[in-house]
Design a protein around this nucleic acid. Sequence first.
DNA 1: GTCTATAGGGTGATAGAC
DNA 2: GTCTATCACCCTATAGAC
Lengths: 216, 216
Amino acid sequence: MAKKKEPAVKDLSTEEKIKAAAKKLFTQKGFAATKTRDIAEEAGINLALLNYYFRSKEKLFELVMKENIQLFLGVMIEKINNNPLPFDEQIVFIVSNYIDMLLENPGLPFFVLNLLQSGNAPDGNPDDPLFKNIEKMRNSFLHNIKAAMEKGEIKHVHPLHIIANLMGMLVFPFIARPILMARSGNISQAEFEQLMIERKKLIPEWIKGMIKVSGG
Amino acid sequence: MAKKKEPAVKDLSTEEKIKAAAKKLFTQKGFAATKTRDIAEEAGINLALLNYYFRSKEKLFELVMKENIQLFLGVMIEKINNNPLPFDEQIVFIVSNYIDMLLENPGLPFFVLNLLQSGNAPDGNPDDPLFKNIEKMRNSFLHNIKAAMEKGEIKHVHPLHIIANLMGMLVFPFIARPILMARSGNISQAEFEQLMIERKKLIPEWIKGMIKVSGG
DNA sequence: GTCTATAGGGTGATAGAC
DNA sequence: GTCTATCACCCTATAGAC
């Protein structure tokens, strides 16, 4: 904390500039397709500085990308684990927070998917701490779904259907945005965001419709 | 058609072997992360043959990947355009065909997303014929949604919500499969397929719940 | 048609001056 | 801390023998 002397004027340090540029390019194009030279150019710095601050392209990738998600995941896992909330309201909470996060980091889902697909990313294997944390969140939520089912609070379907639907509805618009916003039917940036905000209210309703105990 | 002499015994020609290997690797790891050397090895042929049959890595990519989807898209677009079916049944048709296709080509969604993300793929721009065809399918479906709304057949919501939800529920399990099938909660290959087959029946029901005219 | 050998170009990383 | 210059490597693509 006292190690580094920050300039009074916060005009983004070289280190921060690199991180920002790297984040942009990595999320946009994935690991393999991003060149260190592109990052240097985008940051307006010299190529050598990249290796001076971060040991390697891999290390930079790991650092930059994970900083974002891990923070978010930590909060979510904690909230999902300690929940006295009825299931309906858990959904509302998850949806709202997720969409807020995605609006701020629209490139993140694609990055995570790339990571999971293994091979494109430097450590896309299941032992990756990020993977572990996503799995953890999944398991916490899975646990809550099962609990709600046993209480008769929600319908009996395979819990993975619920997770797949919830996650799909949350994340898909962000990765398939070029299709949704296709040229001819044109949709502006503002309209896209408006739709996503609408979804904060709609997704919980849709999910509720799926899990509602119908028979009594 | 008469240009090339096919061997009587269909023991996969060198050309076919390359295409098969390329398809596997490209869908698995994306364009940038796939090396021509890997393709050659996977196909059990010499590296030079790859350039002999297909002019370049790019050309091979384009050819191999698009062959699959374009065929499927053509059928879907035609069916969606000429449809005397009520909206409910259109959904059933789309869902059923889509899931069948995805079970046969599980790597395809990720490939398309990579393509759309532009930069990773050689021609991930919106002028790409594949992109055009996806857009075409989207627009056809969009048209049908609007028609059904005007007939009062379904509820009034922004049509893109419906498309996003339908596509998300169809496609997401295939791209996020490593999460759904995560280690600890383990799910086997067979169980995954079983779930997807279940979804053929369930997704139309869920969608129906979303678009049902409630008031009368 | 299939191979070996290599050209030709780009990428990540570092040495060393300032 | 920042730069220039350069190395060592790996990749795609091709020339040329068989």
